[in-house]
Design a protein around this nucleic acid. Structure first.
Length: 422
RNA sequence: GCAGGGGUGCCCGAGCGGUCAAAGGGAGCAGACUGUAAAUCUGCCGGCGAAUGCCUACGGGGGUUCGAAUCCUCCCCCCUGCACCA
């Protein structure tokens, strides 16, 4: 999974700089970065992870891929797991209380996290640190001392604090302390550089101040844009459901990538495939002039991204499958089974509503009924419009709901357990 | 602690005794159109039911009423201002 193509070694200094700063939004500061790189030693590049959300998506992959590049250039990645803060819990954001995590949960999350990160980074070369290492044994007075180095006014400069204050959304004190805690991590691990998403800019900059307060050379801060989600409107996030997980199967990933709005392609090429700006612009010109069909550009994008996580063969197969189902309107080669057993079948038939629910394509009978009324349900390519219809049960018969959900009837013998929990 | 303003469906938000499963928007789903894109248009969007309908739901408990999301009461939570304060 080469992040950097041929010629990665023996890159000139300027080439390295260009690679590392590609797509970067904030850089504090370029002269300092040069200076650090010129030291000629492996730099300590810090990245913080939140152990409460172990599911990684392509949005997370942006900084992670950047870390990978640092790694390839011989630098030391320092991965911080924020277990100390995670254990405290925090009513952060709007009104949702972030759950307190137990040690076991954090350990489990960290494990899941590591597995996923390992798909992008060479974990054997990462230094993984838990911040309870230094905070766990810290005295209250040491903790308070950290707080002497920052003012409330400066904390309120942070956009989301300012907005929440204005809108009357509560801000707890612990939230104010978080940036300091994160900043102190940089002191503890002696970070040379800290990278993150652009939403982290404030926290990363606090790190610089706190390091200075502790008599250290401030870390260089670099941030990358937050990747927009598949809806093209909001940043990619699991809770908004507009994400593409890095562990998703190739077909799924490919399909989701094909469904992004065209306007998003440039960003995805730039951030997820490291295409330099000049090339992105060239591509956009070709799209505008009609020299390049958007569909082609998107298919190429999807194939290349899927390749990163599943290899070229899988990406190729996903692409072929996609064309088969959507361009040629054929059925997918693999369909999820709809398990039915003798109990479910009356005189060789099953009610269409029950079938749709059983297949998992509707959460309730009402929903199934609606789908049928709307002409979304097909059995063996025939639209079923009568919600009372009984369907002949045949092994291998295909149920389709909407454009993309397919299931294949599979008859099982023996007692039926699914669907009737009592 | 005092005063005032709030808590409504997945989210935002209107309703302020019956006509409320609750306006409107967003999200979601489906249909049309397409490049499974976006945009647009149409429909759906608590559960059970073939259906008249029934059940559950407007922070929680109790009450008034023929009838409560709407009124009273207690409790919980949030916000704002004032007071208090190391």
């Amino acid at each position: 999974m080469a992040v950097i193509e041929a010629g990665e070694y023996g890159m000139t200094f300027e080439e390295q700089l260009e690679l590392l700063t590609n797509a970067c939004v904030d850089l504090h500061t370029l002269p300092e970065l040069r200076e650090k790189l010129e030291l000629g030693r492996p730099l300590r590049v810090k990245y913080g992870a939140d152990p409460s959300a172990p599911d990684l998506h392509l949005g997370h992959s942006v900084p992670l891929r950047k870390l990978r590049q640092f790694q390839e250039l011989g630098h030391q990645v320092v991965f911080i797991i924020g277990d100390f803060t995670g254990r405290i819990g925090d009513p952060s954001g709007r009104s949702k209380t972030r759950p307190m995590l137990t040690e076991e949960e954090i350990a489990a999350n960290a494990q899941t996290y590591a597995e996923q990160v390992g798909r992008i980074l060479d974990l054997s070369k990462c230094e993984i640190r838990y911040n309870s290492e230094w905070f766990g044994s810290m005295s209250a007075s040491q903790m308070l001392e950290i707080a002497t180095h920052y003012t409330v006014a400066r904390m309120l400069e942070r956009d989301d604090f300012a907005l929440r204050l204005r809108d009357g959304v509560p801000i707890t004190l612990i939230e104010m302390l978080y940036p300091l805690v994160q900043a102190y991590d940089s002191v503890a691990v002696e970070a040379d550089i800290e990278i993150g998403g652009s939403d982290q800019l404030f926290n990363l900059l606090v790190g610089r101040d706190i390091m200075r307060a502790y008599g250290m050379t401030p870390q260089v801060v670099m941030t990358w844009p937050l990747l927009l989600g598949t809806d093209g409107k909001e940043k990619m996030s699991k809770s908004l459901g507009n994400y593409i997980g890095i562990t998703e199967p190739p077909e799924e990933m490919y399909g989701k990538l094909m469904s992004i709005p065209d306007e998003l392609m440039a960003q995805y090429y730039h951030l997820l495939l490291d295409m330099p700006r000049s090339q992105v612009e060239a591509m956009q010109r070709d799209l505008e002039s009609g020299k390049l069909h958007p569909r082609e550009a998107k298919a190429n994008l999807a194939r290349r991204i899927v390749s990163l996580y599943h290899g070229q063969d899988a990406a190729q197969r996903a692409a072929a499958e996609f064309d088969r189902v959507f361009a040629q309107r054929q059925k997918p080669t693999d369909m999820q089974p709809i398990l039915l057993c003798a109990d479910d079948i009356n005189d060789g038939t099953i009610g269409i509503i029950e079938l749709v629910v059983r297949a998992g394509f509707a959460k309730s009978n009402s929903e199934a009924r609606r789908l049928i009324r709307q002409g979304a349900v097909r059995v063996q390519d025939r639209v079923i419009e009568d919600e009372m219809a009984n369907i002949e049960v045949e092994e291998g018969a295909v149920l389709q709901v909407g454009k993309r959900r397919f299931g294949r009837i599979t008859i099982t013998r023996g007692d039926n357990e699914h669907g009737r929990k009592e």
